[in-house]
Simulated assay, not measured.
Amino acid sequence: MNLDKAHQEHIIMTMILPQIKDLVCDPNQHVKSALASVIMGLSPIVGRQNTIEHLLPLFLTQLKDECPEVRLNIISNLECVNEVIGIQQLVQSLLPAIVELAEDSKWRVRLAIIEHMPLLAGQLGQEFFDEKLTGLCMSWLIDHVYAIREAATLNLKKLVEQYGPQWAEANVIPKVLAMSREQNYLHRMTYLFCINVLSEVCGRDVTTRVLLPTVLAMADDGVPNVRFNVAKTLQKMAPHLDPAVIAPQVRPVLEKLNADPDVDVKHFASEAIAGIAA
């Protein structure tokens, strides 16, 4: 803001705010979207009382806008408002907006809201997140678009970094483990992709005790793509496992895969054996 500090609040409230109120209802979605990307930044300038009285109704209107980009831009800039009034005032409207964006028919909109989940997790708090949004995060893992499934696995990693391994073991890992038993082999593949990232952040104990047994069991999967991803996953997990399990548990499974009739399975098993030995 280049306005004189002594007068900027007065100028915003008397001269700029009336224009903003008109723009919130503008018929052009690009105008509303552009406004949504900057309106939250006014909160720290005009202060708590003005934000609650004058800006909050505009934020709530934009969270219900028919255009997903408008809603997304409001959610993307929540931090500004959280610093001034806290996020609780917006929660009742936030949740429906997040759910709608999470299920939007355009996969790029779904992708954008996934990328904002770690930020939301930090601002909404663990209890609210567990109750309202963890299920949503898990549902993205079985999305029909690969880019969404990939982003969803990275999102889980960031959430575990934020909330910790104990949270992961209680809230995320049981749901991920269930995917290893799915009929759809793409879901079983996604399970392995999840393990690749979770093993980096869950710690040696959880990775060895909880994640490893299911990966080892999947070496007998009927789909070659799953079997060679087991080999790749074991190689990635190895640095995060208790060294005592490598020789008796991991290596025999990789040796078995190295004798697999499928050439790709053999190739990745061989690579994993060499990688772990190195």
Rank of each mutant, 00 (worst) to 15 (best):
K32T: 08
V99H: 13
P248G: 05
A168H: 10
I16Q: 12
A6G: 14
N225F: 07
I87R: 01
R149E: 03
R48D: 09
N155V: 05
A152I: 00
L177K: 14
N73R: 11
H7T: 13
D4S: 05
I20L: 15
M117W: 13
P248Q: 09
D221E: 09
C25K: 15
P224C: 02
N50T: 00
P174I: 04
S270V: 00
T190E: 08
E131A: 09
L212A: 03
D260T: 05
L3D: 12
C194M: 07
V250E: 14
W107I: 00
N50H: 14
E100V: 04
L234S: 06
H240D: 15
N258K: 07
K236N: 08
I75A: 02
K232P: 05
P165T: 02
Q8P: 01
G122K: 13
L23G: 01
I45A: 02
Y191G: 00
P261M: 05
G122S: 10
P118N: 03
L17P: 05
K158I: 00
P243T: 04
A34Y: 11
P57W: 10
S37F: 06
K64P: 08
H240N: 13
I114H: 12
A34D: 15
V145W: 07
G164N: 08
Q19M: 10
V31N: 12
L192Y: 02
L216E: 04
P68E: 09
C25L: 11
A277T: 10
Q49M: 07
F59M: 03
L55N: 08
A102E: 00
T207P: 12
C202H: 08
M237T: 02
E79D: 07
I246M: 14
L177A: 02
E115P: 03
C137F: 01
E83C: 05
Q89I: 00
A274N: 13
G86V: 01
A274H: 15
N73E: 15
V263L: 13
Q8G: 00
H267R: 15
K132M: 12
P213N: 04
M15S: 13
C80T: 01
N196W: 01
T190Q: 11
I195F: 06
E9W: 05
P261T: 01
G125V: 02
L133H: 00
V223A: 04
A97K: 09
A277C: 09
G275E: 10
S93M: 05
A274D: 12
L141R: 05
V210H: 12
N171V: 00
L78Q: 11
L241H: 10
I11Y: 15
N50K: 14
M15R: 12
